[in-house]
């Protein structure tokens, strides 16, 4: 029996080394060599400083830029606390909460009619970190952004259209717009049309950036 137990312990230790340590380090090595950008979390840099990830949504709540979906990750888009609202469709508290979100959206975007609010912009994603909004939700925000920034509507519509992520391989998924990508491009437009405002909106960033430098 003791002989048998030794075999079992040897099997356990060997497989631990192979499947936990060996395997993980092998994939890590492949990532380092072949896919360094992805392996490092698809980070976006500005002036060689990481300012976020292409895959992780950010707390875009300012009315001057494209807003993302409500987030239940921590106090909103906290990358260390992924999670959805977990509200059931029949939960009365949830519906009351939705009423608030809907009214806010209508107030900020008066051009949107009741009955035509895109469903994704008033509901949270499963992790609270999804960067995508629907095309309709992006279009709906164009009039507001245009009137606040002075960028012509046509330029903004064009911006959204150019940044649509279509179905992958023409088949998989639903078309949408990545807000991280979209707002980065928007910041360039704002810089071009309204430099004063650009400094105002992104001042915090520039300020912190220079301090960190």
């Amino acid at each position: 029996m003791i002989k048998e137990l030794i075999k079992m312990i040897k099997l356990t230790v060997l497989l631990y080394i192979v499947c936990s340590l060996g395997y993980t380090f092998l994939i890590w090595g492949i990532g380092k060599i072949a896919f360094p950008f992805q392996a490092g979390g698809s980070l976006v840099y500005k002036n060689s400083k990481p300012i976020g990830s292409m895959l992780i949504g950010e707390k875009f709540t300012s009315p001057y830029i494209f807003n993302g979906r409500p987030s239940y990750a921590g106090n909103g888009y906290n990358g260390t606390e992924s999670g959805g609202s977990n509200y059931a469709p029949t939960n009365g508290k949830y519906i009351r909460h939705e009423k608030k979100l809907i009214n806010n959206f209508l107030k900020e975007n008066p051009s949107v009619k009741k009955g035509e609010i895109p469903v994704d912009i008033v509901t949270g994603s499963g992790s609270g970190l999804g960067p995508y909004i629907s095309i309709a939700a992006a279009f709906d925000q164009v009039p507001r952004i245009s009137s606040l920034t002075g960028i012509p509507k046509s330029a903004l519509y064009m911006l959204v259209k150019r940044n649509i992520s279509y179905r992958q391989f023409g088949i998989f998924g639903t078309p949408g717009v990545n807000t991280v990508k979209l707002n980065l491009k928007l910041s360039l437009l704002i810089k071009k049309y309204n430099f004063k405002l650009y400094k105002l909106i992104f001042k915090g960033f520039l300020f912190k950036y220079t301090i960190n430098n």
């Binding site: 950010e58 990358g79 260390t80 960033f205």
Partner: peptide
């Protein structure tokens, strides 16, 4: 795009100045 790194957390400052932690 799935990461493979031994960094557990990355602190970044988003373009709007908000601090964000990435796991």
């Amino acid at each position: 795009g799935v990461p493979q790194t031994f960094v557990m957390q990355k602190k970044v400052t988003n373009m709007t100045g908000i601090k964000q932690k990435l796991s």
